[in-house]
Write a protein that binds this DNA or RNA. Structure first.
Lengths: 231, 231
DNA sequence: CATGTTTTTATGTGTATACATAACAGCATG
DNA sequence: CATGCTGTTATGTATACACATAAAAACATG
């Protein structure tokens, strides 16, 4: 073997050996220096290839211990959570938006607790419906930490969704996201134009800017919605 | 600014500027050479830092065009789809496994079509329940392409789940995954010990080994299940 | 023999350098 | 004026080299 000058070609060769079971799950593979010599390239190049495979979860690397083929390759599905408008437009549909509710009020305790604000603090609550070719696509129910983001109180969110406005105007440094299935409440069902108790895909997000919470949002998708990803 | 000797520190500094809105969404940032000079490190180091931020979706890079802060940072949620046994054990619960069905038969047409096999081919159909502390955790309904993986016909899947056996024994080169919410059928409800039509989180996976399909599986999680991820 | 220390080793990273490549801009030519 | 060429520029990557660091293994010492 020789002349594998690019890190991609090294990666392909390593992948080939894994898929061909020349290197089986759990096996220790040759170290970087040996592979570099065998494949006729620099160790840096091998490192680049192996590091990227490790990031994808196919290899497990530890200093001194060496590199081994992941025993049970944890499939990493990367979901792109885009602005809902873009998601709809990317499917080639016409996007529509309807503000359903906008109020500044004291939040239920589970919300103020999640956002780490006082139970007396007034937060901004926005509910909006996103449409795809005039059909209900997703229902967004959002609480914005108005203490940290007072500018949100100036916005009426009639023509731009809170989803989009926040992304453009308020940075965040970290966030949590979770996926679940939920039955449609009577209120949900009315907005999404579906039977009550329909199974809805729910995405909950909570974002923070350093130590300050920014927003907590639940997005409920219309029945039948799928989120797809590559492995 | 100087003495930012590690790519992580360069990355932190870049992140700081983005979060502090010194570089706003859509802005073109200085090129690698300039940043390297300003921060007092090699261009390679800057490259390492920026490449990794681009992979995370915070920067958009194009040759010659330069690097800009992502206008609408598409949040990338990376979900780790582990072996179900590990998922349960990682939560500190006792794992249990019950095989519900194992049969070799001609598959429904939507399955044989998805797997790209002939409508006459006999496939292996396995249904199993995964338990967490004796409570139903997830219901796995799987079809295995027995034409490509004849060894699966030798396995009874009584003590090891198909989930785990396949990962250890059959490689795949690519796959698709999708998430949805589905109402529990009468059959599902019985297995998962929940009311019929409960909202269930469903994960569908289809994997391929080069041009051959390997398996199509649907995993239905018990009501209330959440999948979590960081952003 | 148990426990702490040193050595060795594999990966991780920083540097300087060189060349490759994509893409834009401007120029030339029909 | 459209179309194609050509140079310039920013990122992408390969190389050799050096040193850092984590961790296993070997060793020493009470």
């Amino acid at each position: 073997m020789q002349a594998a000058q690019t890190w991609q070609s090294v990666q392909h060769e390593v992948l080939r050996r894994i898929h061909a079971r020349e290197w089986k799950p759990g096996d220790l593979i040759p170290n970087e220096a040996e592979l570099a010599k065998e494949l006729g390239c620099a160790r840096t190049t091998v490192n680049r290839a192996l590091r990227s495979l490790a990031e994808r979860g196919l290899l497990e690397r530890r200093r001194k211990a060496g590199t081994r083929v992941a025993a049970q390759p944890v499939a990493k599905a990367t979901l792109n959570i885009a602005v809902i408008r873009h998601e709809v437009e990317d499917r080639g549909a016409r996007y529509g938006y309807q503000l359903a509710l906008r109020e500044a009020r004291v939040a239920p305790t589970h919300i103020s607790a999640a956002l780490g604000v006082g139970v007396q603090d007034r937060l901004l609550h926005v509910v909006a419906l996103h449409l795809s070719d005039d059909a209900p696509y997703a229902l967004e129910d959002r609480w914005i930490n108005a203490v940290h983001v007072p500018a949100a109180l100036e916005q009426d969110f009639r023509s731009i969704s809170a989803n989009e406005w926040l992304l453009q105007n308020v940075p965040y440094t970290r966030g949590e996201i979770s996926f679940a299935a939920k039955p449609a409440s009577a209120e949900n069902a009315k907005h999404l134009n579906c039977p009550e108790n329909s199974a809805l895909l729910a995405i909950n997000r909570l974002t923070w800017d350093h130590e300050q919470s920014v927003t907590a949002v639940q997005v409920l998708f219309a029945p039948g919605h799928h989120m797809r990803a590559r492995i």
